[in-house]
Nucleic acid binder design. Structure first.
Lengths: 360, 360
DNA sequence: TTGTATGCGTTATCAG
DNA sequence: CTGATAACGCATACAA
């Protein structure tokens, strides 16, 4: 039943006016040392803590940052969130975390509602197929900055911090090709997502450059989760001839591929090479450890938060699009394709394609 | 530069008083249908959204929940957070997430500061060695409910939602013993943490019941992370005779054990059986898949949030201590010990600890 | 340098 | 049933 201490009580205790208290707290005017001390003492002894609510109401802005993400349960996101939080914390900003659950309407409702908290800025990892750009622009017109992370909604022209998705996918695919693979499949993420689309582009580019044909049915779209990756792998591995390598556009889906391969009795990498994207910590513990494109999740979050806070501080430059590097981590899930003497297990030989041509 | 729409503007547009607007919004009085409609129309057409800040200031309580956790990057926590968020969302509560980073002072500062947001309730997974109970009681005396999750700080007598830690550890250890192991080691978490202490108790109890002697140096304390688990495993596996089974008190540490074993050329489970705790999703993808005690992270969070909201709603009963069940998930990292001596394969409770020593 | 007063957007009390 | 009006806790322009 203890009500919080208010500024008025501090003022009484220190026998000064409430305005003076405010001044010593905010350094908004020089206060005579004597009084200043009295105020400080009162604050300490009464354990005063300014009401963030009242401050926000008065200043039309709080020190809260909104962050909406698809799902904290996806192991790529915690690192991003942590990066955001650490940077925010140092600057005394707090973050309200919202899981939009890949549901555009939930996302929209969060975004809309966060405005009522007068957040200082918004960080968002947009969901697939969300028509959220409009809502986001509403922030801009209220001059509260927004930074998109990892992907960008349709029509978004504002700040964004992304990773080199196409580049990473290109590198991974090229690696597969260099190992000798010619029947490459890809399990893409939801192509509505810019990052998923970029990764697919990287994959395609690598194949084109190497003059490797792309079988349309070897391009599967899934949902960036283990289950859908598993299903896609099942489809892929049921084809004849089946692919000798699969590039899964994130690690979760790669795990699904691993599982599918295992169930089908396929050895990795002897019968099937697998490459993933994200390079989560766990990739080193899988059987076999997973070759994957690393993307700096923590840095992604930290960088976005820094940019956002610059905007909060008043930076008015043109929209920035920051691109963080990715890096291929070679582990043990990729090897040369099994040269199955006459024929591979259950596989038919494909039509003529010059094999064994190594490039670069 | 667009300022948010306020209630006053709605009132003007609908040509009613501001009080009336409030009434139709909150249903706090019956309003004549005619006016009611006008107000509703105005709200819709102007996109009005009440200021959470002003509401909170006025009502001395917001619809925000504070949640402080050690580190969202620890893969056990995202599920818990998600459980909290989902329950909160359905009741229109939002959560402010704080990573205390296992730093008691950061934790204390978060807990203290969260009060200035007039949160409706606080959920906390306390850090090790934190003397936080006092701060928590401050909430109680301001009658804002607090629920501890997963562990409980020293001297905490309030609500808590935990899992059957001792039970789970007991089951896992018993399983190890039944497989024939007699030289069992344990890597405990920070024993300041109640859950870590409970798990160690479960381990001990299983050994005592089976009359298996506990080698003091086979009990190592680590930090619930992969690296410290790895280090502890290195110490353990350097002993002669070395343990034939290690119970790691969480999966992260178990991964460290796996890594250590691998580096030492020890096969799992032939040379070393490993059991973990948490049963994270990834445990099925490790090599070998990891036997582990499952604890329902999502349910932990959801249950805690439900209890908290009951308190928010005014439930005044005595403090509750909810215990969620754990369950041993047997996978492939546990097997019988390698037969080296006459007695070690026996299976039932025998005291056969001095068997022949092997070296790697 | 310090105090007073006003208003931020709501809710709630109280007349009418 | 509806409309004034007084807080809520603080920042700030202005007066003293």
């Amino acid at each position: 039943m203890t009500a919080p201490v208010t500024m008025r009580q501090i003022a009484e205790r220190a026998r000064v006016s409430i305005g003076t208290v405010s001044h010593v707290i905010n350094g908004t005017a020089t206060v005579r040392p004597k009084l200043r001390e009295r105020v400080l003492d009162a604050i300490r002894s009464m354990g005063y803590q300014p009401s963030a609510l009242a401050q926000g109401l008065r200043k039309h802005r709080t020190n809260m940052l909104g962050m909406v993400i698809p799902d904290i349960t996806n192991p790529f996101f915690p690192g991003v969130v942590r990066g955001v939080e650490d940077v925010a914390y140092k600057r005394s900003f707090r973050v309200i975390l919202c899981n939009a659950d890949n549901d555009p309407s939930k996302e929209a409702s969060y975004v809309r509602e966060l405005r009522s908290y007068q957040i200082a800025g918004l960080l968002i990892i947009p969901a697939a197929g969300a028509d959220i750009a409009g809502h986001l622009r509403a922030y801009a017109s209220a001059s509260v900055p927004v930074v998109c992370i990892d992907r960008v909604p349709d029509g978004w022209k504002g700040d964004a911090v992304l990773v080199a998705n196409a580049e990473g996918a290109y590198l991974a695919t090229k690696h597969l090709i260099q190992m000798g693979h010619r029947r490459l499949a890809v399990i893409a993420g939801p192509l509505k997502l810019t990052n998923a689309a970029e990764r697919l582009k990287g994959f395609t580019r690598a194949l084109n450059e190497a003059r490797v044909e792309i079988e349309p049915e070897f391009v599967q779209e899934a949902c960036f989760d283990t289950e859908s990756g598993y299903q896609a792998a099942l489809r892929l591995l049921g084809m004849l001839p089946r692919p000798t390598a699969i590039f899964a556009c994130n690690d979760l889906m790669a795990f699904g591929v691993l599982q599918a391969a295992r169930e089908l009795g396929l050895r990795c990498p002897e019968d099937l090479s697998i490459a993933g994207f994200d390079s989560l910590e766990f990739t080193q513990f899988t059987d076999p450890s997973l070759t994957s494109v690393y993307q700096p999740g923590y840095q992604l979050g930290a960088t976005a938060a820094r940019l956002l806070l610059q905007r909060v501080d008043g930076l008015r430059s043109a929209p920035k699009k920051v691109l963080l590097p990715t890096e291929l981590k070679k582990r043990n899930s990729v090897g040369p394709p099994h040269v199955a003497g006459p024929e591979s297990v259950g596989g038919t030989m494909r039509k003529g394609k010059h094999s064994g041509r190594r490039r670069r």
